[in-house]
Write a protein that binds this DNA or RNA. Structure first.
Length: 424
DNA sequence: TCTGGGGTCCTAGGACCC
DNA sequence: TCTGGGGTCCTAGGACCC
């Protein structure tokens, strides 16, 4: 939304006044002053080390087939997240591999966020393990940003038992870079006035939004540091990277990042996907997997009180290229039947593609989310039953676990379901 | 690096409306 | 009959992030 609206060009250099004006117009509250970026270190792996003393000081890998997270002892040996498990074991044969325990991580995350929120009311969650904290205006009550950061780190260590790194600066971007530089278990304050000295020697890959593709484009022109990007000029960046990315990078390299810390950001989509393994699977296997994913996503939507209008099907073929197909419903829905019918219809349209190219991943996601309470009831068809059935199934699964009920189409497939209930 | 699962945002063309 | 410009929505693809 307005995030990117006024990152724009040099004319929008925003002093506090200018920014307040814009924010007043669009009804947002401007958050001034220093920002903390707090980022838990090797989060999943640290939770495992906390809960099992035998893992402390040793290389730990969370996740089997693919590394979801690894401890710093494993990182020192070259293990990285998203790396294949086999390669990780070659690099680090003595690593201890543990299965992920998502509920333990959620619990730890909630405890950390409670500490964030008693530190300041201005908390913007970025993911399960990191957040921005606005600490402007807290000087009298809580001390300087550095003092707040020291206390925050100590409290999280003492109360939750986890190491966390904090970066402090006057913009979100610099606070985030500072924490990345300070990792692990560190604290780094970028002093006011020292921003460009800190920023310009850094490699371009530190810029937010510079991944492998953009980095390669810059490298081909001999540009390796943020300082060189800043010297490039906006027009040159726009012609190299396009309007959006070019202006964005120009602003960041000149330390113009006016994005305020936003407390209430709502999720914009809810989805799930699953890889079908290296050998490509049949159409009916893809269909079965999608039925299970749709169930999961719809349950999550109902639990969150959201309903969505745009259903997206995601495919990955045997050669690892990807495709998406989407369809927008007339009204938002959280009904499994409605969403599943849409998914099946989209899938049917890709049947020739799947049969010629092979399928290795399917996923769905639902976007254009609205509050479920504001959703217009489904009118002519299925007078009420769809919702009632969903609600009944949700209750059973809540009490007896997800495997208690499953779709007939899944019976006998690898995910070991039990009692058929839904006709298919 | 032979590749998981959850997301966000941007771009671009076409349909459609005024 | 031929023509213009602006705005919004939908769809598909892609880069990027944790």
């Amino acid at each position: 939304m307005f995030n990117h609206g006024f990152v724009a060009g040099p004319k929008t250099v925003s002093g506090p006044c200018h920014r307040s004006n814009i924010c007043a117009k669009i009804g947002a509250v401007p958050i001034e002053g220093p920002i903390l970026h707090a980022d838990l270190d090797a989060f999943y792996a640290s939770v495992e080390q906390r809960d099992d003393p035998r893992l402390r000081g040793r290389p730990v890998i969370v996740g089997g087939g693919v590394v979801l997270a690894c401890s710093y002892e494993a990182k020192a040996r070259g293990v990285r997240s998203a790396m294949g498990g086999r390669q990780a074991r070659v690099l680090c044969p003595d690593a201890i591999v543990v299965s992920p325990r998502m509920s333990a991580y959620s619990e730890a995350s909630e405890a950390v966020f409670r500490i964030f929120e008693r530190t300041t009311p201005i908390v913007e969650a970025l993911s399960i393990d990191e957040a921005f904290l606005g600490v402007g205006g807290l000087l009298r009550v809580s001390g300087t940003p550095a003092e707040i950061a020291v206390r925050l780190r100590r409290e999280i260590r003492e109360e939750v038992g986890l190491p966390i790194t904090v970066g402090v600066a006057h913009t979100k971007f610099l606070a985030k870079v500072a924490s990345a530089v300070a990792k692990p278990d560190g604290l780094l304050v970028v002093p006011a006035g020292g921003e460009l000295d800190f920023l310009h020697p850094l490699p371009v890959t530190r810029l937010w939004g510079v991944g492998p593709v953009t980095a390669e484009k810059l490298h081909q022109r001999g540009i390796h540091t943020v300082g060189r990007v800043a010297g490039l000029g906006e027009a040159a960046l726009v012609s190299l990277l396009g309007q959006g990315a070019g202006r964005h990078l120009y602003a960041l390299a000149h330390n113009r990042d006016p994005r305020p810390v936003q407390t209430r950001r709502r999720r914009r989509s809810i989805g799930a996907q699953c890889a079908l393994g290296p050998r490509s699977r049949s159409y009916s296997e893809a269909e079965a997997a999608l039925a299970a994913l749709t169930d999961r996503v719809c349950r999550r939507m109902r639990k969150a009180g959201r309903a969505g209008r745009t259903v997206m099907l995601r495919l990955r073929f045997a050669d690892y290229t990807r495709a998406t197909r989407s369809h927008s419903l007339p009204w938002p829905s959280d009904h499994t039947r409605t969403i599943l019918d849409t998914v099946r219809h989209l899938l049917l349209g890709t049947r020739p593609l799947i049969e010629t190219r092979g399928i290795t991943l399917v996923g769905i996601s639902v976007a254009n989310l609205a509050e479920a309470g504001t959703v217009q009831p489904m009118l002519p068809f299925a007078p009420g039953d769809a919702g009632d059935l969903d609600a009944a199934l949700d209750v059973v699964r809540e009490r007896f676990g997800s495997a208690a009920i499953t779709r007939a189409i899944l019976i006998g497939r690898d995910h070991t379901p039990t009692v058929p209930l839904l006709p298919d």
